[in-house]
Design a binder for these strands. Structure first.
Lengths: 206, 206
DNA sequence: ATCAAGTTGAGAGTCAGTCTCAATCCGCTC
DNA sequence: GAGCGGATTGAGACTGACTCTCAACTTGAT
């Protein structure tokens, strides 16, 4: 239970760059927590337990993660950045909706690379309201990155408070959610990519 | 601080029908809480304070409302039911997207009937992540009512795990959110209805 | 060697939400 | 009108997430 030797060793190994050490710490905590979440469920795992098994104090845990949910959702920030980058990288000739669909291939690709892990994650999220809620919150922050590019692609004069760009991005994210739910409902027998094609395609013929 | 006289009086007045008394109690608590939220902000108001001012114990408060957020969002359940009813009431000849837009007039009407109160509510929600989060959760439950009707209107053979209906409803709700944000951003100078027209109209030409 | 800045653990405190238990209130029956 | 049974309440203990403060320690630069 005494963690000082652990901490000393880890800090020495991480050594030079503070930010690097921080990332190492984070991913170790995430690894420990993921195992606990898988074994006992998210709600049945306390922060004290994660902290104890990862070898840090509860106070330090909250210095690394704002909330318990954030341990499980750490990847979403970078994922959002990657989706935004992919969106911006789409050719200008592409229609906005199609460009957004292609940008989401960052996500479908992530799913395709390890469908089992992905499905387990979806399942945990659906069973855990607080997690789903926090997931949505983090996804909402993607708007900050995606809306401006969507506005640019719509090519309108920058209307003062035009909700069109935000509406399109929000609709895209809603399609993503619907596809995710469907993917979970059919237990992964259909790919996320094909379900997303159907979701976003359905909006083409309103 | 002693509330027994209050309670005795209220209970006696409510008398015959239990469920009626329950509604009266709820709306009184909501009134007290709304005042506190307006004056001090949502996060700065504790459940103990609401309970004390409304003349009931904290335990009883949680028998009436699952969470503190639910006091502020009590109306959403009935609002969802009304939107669903309006959606079902649209003529079958209407295109699904247009029918959904018209169903949302239940909400735009609510906004139009008291724009100031509505704007204050939007503002509190935007300033309070836990509230926004819970609002989204409650709105997600509208899917249960809206998706089947949307599926019916799409007139497809009931595909096993087709995400189309959920995607359309989710997209509609995203447009509603975008319109709400825009309405708050322009401080109510544009009506929610016109902003919703622009949001949902933008999806017609993808 | 030392000094300053950053990081940590310990521990107390706040608040939401759950649970149990005893007291009370209600309508009902005898 | 006395008592009975179900429902509602308040009191209070308890859990767990999250915040804050403070003293001890580590690290890197001097």
């Amino acid at each position: 239970m005494n963690t000082s030797s652990n901490l000393g060793g880890r800090a020495a190994a991480a050594g030079p760059l503070r930010s690097r050490a921080r990332e190492v710490m984070k991913s170790e905590v995430i690894a420990v927590a993921s195992r606990l979440f898988d074994n006992q469920g998210f709600d049945n795992t306390t922060v004290d337990q994660i902290a104890a098994e990862a070898g840090l104090s509860r106070a330090t845990f909250f210095r690394y993660f704002k909330t318990k949910e954030d341990v499980a959702l750490d990847g979403l920030n970078e994922l959002g950045r990657r989706v935004a980058a992919a969106f911006i990288a789409q050719p200008d000739g592409e229609r906005p909706w199609t460009a957004l669909r292609h940008a989401f291939d960052v996500i479908t690709g992530e799913h395709a690379s390890d469908p089992d892990r992905s499905l387990r994650f979806f399942k945990m999220m659906c069973e855990t309201p607080s997690l789903k809620s926090r997931h949505w919150q983090k996804q909402q922050r993607w708007h900050e990155l995606l809306d401006p590019e969507m506005g640019r692609r719509l090519g309108r004069p920058p209307a003062p408070h035009d909700p069109a760009a935000a509406a399109l991005v929000g609709a895209g994210l809603a399609c993503l959610d619907a596809a995710t739910e469907a993917c979970l409902a059919c237990n992964g027998t259909e790919t996320l990519a094909s379900l997303l094609d159907r979701s976003m395609g359905a909006l083409l013929r309103l």
